[in-house]
Nucleic acid binder design. Structure first.
Lengths: 352, 352
DNA sequence: AGGTGTCAGGTAAGCGCTTTCCTGACAGCC
DNA sequence: GGCTGTCAGGAAAGCGCTTACCTGACACCT
């Protein structure tokens, strides 16, 4: 009965442990987080037993406050359940785990406002680094605000890395969307498609404009155009992709190709075409972008542009965790065309 | 120049703000987090200006420590990039956001050890609730250890809710895996399949055994068996699902149906079958489980068992955030068979 | 023997905030 | 005019830890 103290009355604290072990809090602390300061086996033993008895877990906030040590890393993505971001996150996670960091994932759901809130929140949590993944917005006010907050964070030692954002001036990993789209445009031209509908992403996202620009460049190189009336702006997801395809087809039934600016929308397009009994690629070719894992599993398997998604994540995390250099480091990762079964020469181009 | 203090020398703190505004830290604190205590407009104004000037963000750890207030909520999942978990997470996130809580997502990658670590970590972060999503493990030692830690957490006011785990004695949301599998078994029997290969999940997961049990029960009801030699244990992912299917087919080319215990593996099976030129459902029917979003997008669209994934998440979060009741609340969510194009009557059963 | 070096362990000062309790000013009352 | 009540704002005590610094014991030296 001798050891009976007022335990169970709330969370066990370090001093509870110390008291039970009959040592000072300092000694208990040293044992618990393996300080360099030596402690005799006798005391160490007693402390460890007390820890076990009390199921003691250090209060992370108190620790962090006391050490003013930055622990975790935060990433703000548009939406983790989107495979594009799951893959990137997988890469981030891998490196974070290797370096013993906890990764906190925040979904902005493409709401700039919420993105700002999460930056504040992560800053408040004293995270070691903030990673922003996913396209930026065409919105100067927002960009200025965001950059202001990030600058304040960096000014106090925080690290920032972005994936696929032009607007930030620091370390960045950039998928080469424009060059990728150019490859795609070349391929479409090569296959002889003249009437091409484009299912683009949200107009406000820079990724959308980058990809559109690349596509246009490829067409311009052959003195062709990508007229605005053959472009639809959707939400980068399956269902709006299907709707956009329907709208495109209703306006112009003779299209021979649909280029969707990401795979989710391409899959929506595929599904819409199937439901209308239009053969792919027999009547219409479909192109995607990103090469997310499921692109190979749909039928026909999707011709798309591969982005090294996981690597985007690993690189960004490496950038964020390695000591920052004076000059911003920008790594550009190349895209690659992946030909599968959803594309074929345009009718009358069978010689290809 | 009058207001120039040693700013920029680290993160701005509350007292920096107070000093700059010419008030006490107490007043600054009251203004900043809208305490009930009244503050004159004059002072309030000055404090807010100082906050803006200094780009001040409260140190969340200090706040949490001082209030000993539990803020965020943590969820431990097997792997968010698995659509099964992304969907659940989406549900969790929705409710968490509604209630103004930050959700921290932790991936255990099906490593019990890491799951334990994350529980400790979240406990240390003083989260308001811990949600465990995903199958438990057939491992009494681990279960005992985990329950011990969770009990300690709950003893100090933490809330715990689990999704799809039998082993925990508290609040739980349970997908009815067994009944769902029974439905699936019934359907397979109804279609007249006699030689059925099963691509199961990891043997150590209770979800695997539950689904297997349901399947067996349906077969037993018709005096049929599900012999062990027609079962393969894979890793619940696409690639191992394909490999397991290959192994099944190699051992017994006359199988007329493959029942995969989740959709990812079913998609792997589909891909393997396609690569071998085996028609689905012409020669072999394929069945999945979960009804993840992409099940409708593969070709042929997957016949599967729908689990209300998002709802699993919303319910669990609601349980976790609502005040706990004395007796554990267990909500069971029904599964539902979804017939699509990957299944057909067995050969010789065309009358169906 | 006295001095010095070494080392295990304790003491106490914060880390940045919240909040209770106190103070002093002022208005309203007999 | 003196008393009380009210109320804005400040002082200070923690929240649970870490760690620089101090203490006292002991061994070893001249």
């Amino acid at each position: 009965m001798a050891g009976a103290t007022r335990e169970g009355a709330g969370v066990a604290t370090l001093s509870d442990v110390a008291r039970r072990a009959g040592v000072s809090p300092a000694t208990a602390s040293r044992v618990i987080n393996g300080s360099s300061k030596p402690v005799t086996d006798e005391l160490r033993e007693r402390v460890l037993r007390a820890v076990a008895d009390l199921q003691y877990v250090p209060n992370a906030h108190a620790q962090l406050l006391a050490r003013s040590h930055r622990g975790a890393v935060g990433v703000i993505v548009h939406d983790v359940s989107d495979p594009y971001f799951s893959e990137i996150t997988r890469g981030l996670q891998r490196v974070a785990t290797d370096r013993g960091r906890l990764l906190m994932i925040c979904n902005s759901y493409r709401d700039p406002e919420r993105e700002l809130e999460y930056v504040e929140l992560l800053r408040g949590q004293q995270v070691a680094a903030i990673i922003l993944a996913g396209s930026g917005y065409h919105d100067p006010d927002f960009t200025r605000l965001l950059n202001g907050k990030l600058a304040a964070y960096e000014a106090t030692g925080g690290r920032v890395a972005v994936i696929g954002r032009h607007e930030h001036s620091g370390d960045a990993v950039m998928p080469d969307n424009r060059a990728g789209a150019r490859l795609l445009g070349e391929e479409i031209r090569r296959l002889g498609h003249e009437r091409v509908g484009v299912v683009a992403g949200p107009k406000m996202l820079t990724t959308t404009t980058d990809r559109l620009t690349g596509l246009r460049e490829a067409f311009a190189a052959h003195h062709r155009e990508l007229p605005e009336h053959r472009i639809r702006y959707a939400a980068f997801d399956r269902d709006t992709g299907a709707a956009a395809t329907a709208s495109l087809l209703d306006a112009e039934p003779e299209l021979t190709a649909i280029a969707a600016l990401n795979d989710s929308m391409a899959i929506g397009a595929l599904s819409l075409l199937r439901s209308r009994g239009i053969a792919v690629p027999g009547q219409v070719s479909v192109f995607g972008f990103d090469d997310m894992p499921m692109a190979r599993d749909v039928t026909p398997a999707l011709t798309t542009v591969r982005l090294p998604l996981v690597e985007l994540g690993t690189r960004a995390m490496a950038l964020a965790l390695d000591a920052g250099s004076a000059k911003p480091r920008v790594e550009s990762l190349a895209a690659e065309l992946v030909r599968r079964d959803s594309s074929a020469p345009a009718k009358g181009m069978a010689r290809y």
